[in-house]
Design a binder for these strands. Structure first.
Lengths: 169, 169
DNA sequence: TGTGAAACTATCGGAAC
DNA sequence: GTTCCGATAGTTTCACA
């Protein structure tokens, strides 16, 4: 049987994107403002987008409950807390360790140096953004990774600068 | 001439880290709380760390003014705004284009797909985190990069998942 | 740093469009 | 469905101890 159904081994089709309701123009404007300054007061937001404060409150709460807004976070300068040296570390695991990837990464994510963990599909299995006090702390961290039996290879790049372009929803 | 002085072309020594005043224990606790939830009210913060609300306000304002807190940002789900496909793209420039790196990256940073730009020291010159509507939009973006004369190579990895471990200052 | 008072903001119910 | 209004509770903010 030449299995023409091989495309359907995955129960879901090409993800319908779960587009219940993409935010309308006003919501997108609110998202842009809150991404720029999450502490902007509700009445200022309302005025900026031209709606009543109560409506604004309802919209923002709905965005939060739908998961469009996942949270509000202070952006803390790592250097100001004694961790001026940042790096990106790509990690490739031993092929027989892939099944333990989630577990492995969970442990790595608890190391205090780690700021971001990205699970990847590609040459590497995941990528870490880390912040350390100095180069010797970074070296120790990379050494720790490299000596783990599940790790096949790492590639470290120092981060000179980081820019988050303003979003335009 | 074998230039033994090549190590001293940079006027500054290993950066003295500009450690005017690392935050004390209470400030670090405030940073942790605000990184977790930037909209936590001032009086709740004050109670959580055991100081008066006015003192708390002054500390947080000082952290902001010293640049320890760089801003407060809403975390918006890219998928919810129609950009469910994220990728990391490492970019290496032609060696003769390095001098135009800043200028080049400034243009790239204005592309709406780009969420983060990391300037790197290492194999690659910079790294982009992008969010696109679908794989064809991603392909177009990478194509645009690759056809630019200053770009020597790119390496794209899809992002399956992104974890930001809770910080422990 | 803390206290207290004043000004401001968030939040809700209800009425109206 | 969205918007506005008014009332209350809660929060931010500042002068001063």
């Amino acid at each position: 049987m030449a299995d023409e159904d091989s495309k359907s081994v995955f129960p879901r089709g090409p993800q319908p994107n779960d587009v219940r309701a993409l935010p309308d123009r006003i919501d997108r404007e609110l998202l842009r403002l809150l991404e720029h300054d999450a502490r902007m007061p509700n009445n200022a937001l309302a005025e900026a987008v031209g709606i009543a404060p109560s409506t604004c409150l309802g919209r923002i709460r709905a965005l939060r409950e739908r998961g469009v807004i996942r949270g509000y976070h202070a952006d803390v300068d790592p250097a100001a807390t004694g961790h001026p040296l940042q790096a990106m570390i790509s990690v490739r695991l031993q092929s027989d360790a892939r099944s333990r990837l989630a577990e492995f990464v969970e442990r790595v994510g608890r190391l205090p140096e780690v700021r971001d963990v990205y699970f990847l599909a590609g040459d590497d299995d995941y990528m870490l953004r880390v912040a350390t006090a100095d180069s010797s702390a970074l070296r120790d961290f990379v050494m720790t990774l490299n000596t783990h039996p599940d790790v096949a290879a790492t590639r470290t790049s120092l981060i000179f600068d980081h820019i988050r372009p303003p979003q335009t929803y």
